[in-house]
Amino acid sequence: MLEANGLMVFYENMLALNNVHLRCKKEEIVGVFGANSAGKSTLMYTLSGIMDDIRKKEAMAGGERITVLGEIKYLGREIGALKPSKRAREGIILCPERRRIFRESSVMENLRIGGYLSTAAQASETIDYVFSLFPALKNLRKRIGGFLSGGEQQMLAIGRALMAQPKLLLLDEPLLGLSPLMQATLVRSTRVIRDQRKISLIVTEQYARPVLPIVDYAFILENGTAVLEGNREELMGNPDVRAAYFGVN
C-alpha cells in the first residue's frame, strides 16, 4: 500500500530522518516506535506531505532550510511531489500529534469539517460510525472542542480523521498523555477501525507496550534511523527492545 524508500529529512544541517525504509501493506497496522526526537513526527509529516508545507513556510520567512529526499510510493504511484491536500484526497489522512482539534467548534462541527472530502451520504454514515465506535462522544456533540477532556479530544481527532474517508490513516502519538484505561480503549478501537473500515494504519508511539498487541509489523526509530524492524514476535524476542520500549526485562 505505502512504501517509503530512503527517506531523508534535514532541518538545516541536522539529520532528522536518515535513510528510512518503511512499508505498510493493505489492512495492516504498522507501529513506529521511538523516543523523543527520534523522528516519529517528522516521518508522519513527511508521509502526509505537511513537511512540504512547513518547508515552504520556513523558506519564505527565511528560517530553517528543510530538505526532503527519498521516494514515497502509495498504491504503486510516486507521491513525493504531491501537495498535502492532494495526498489527503488520495486517502492519506493524518491525525496529528496533540490532537489539534478545532478548539472553538463543537464536536459535531469538528466532525463535519473533517468530512469536507466525503459525500453527504458518506459523511452521515461515518458520523454514525464514529458515534458507535466512541459512544462517549455521542452525548457531547454540542460541546465545544476546547472543553473536552484529553481522551475525548483524541477520540474526536480520530473521528475527524475517519470522516475524510482514509485509506491509510496516520496516527501520530494517539495515546499521548492519556490514562492507561483510556489508552486501552483507544487501542482497542484502533483495531476495530482497521477490521471494520478495511484501512491501513501507521501508529507512532513512544512507549510500545500498549500498542504492541495490535500491530502487525513495527519499526523502531533511533535518532532518525530505523534501527530495527520486524513483526511482534521478533521485536519481543530482542532483549534490548524489550527493555527500552516495552518496559519488561
Binding site: 524508500n5 530512503g6 534535514f10 535513510n19 532550510r65 529526499l69 527519498g70
Partner: peptide, 12 residues
C-alpha cells in the same frame, strides 16, 4: 539511490 542526491548546505 540517495548517493545521487544533493542538497544545499548552509553553514556558518
Amino acid at each position: 539511490m540517495s548517493s545521487t542526491h544533493r542538497r544545499k548546505e548552509r553553514i556558518d
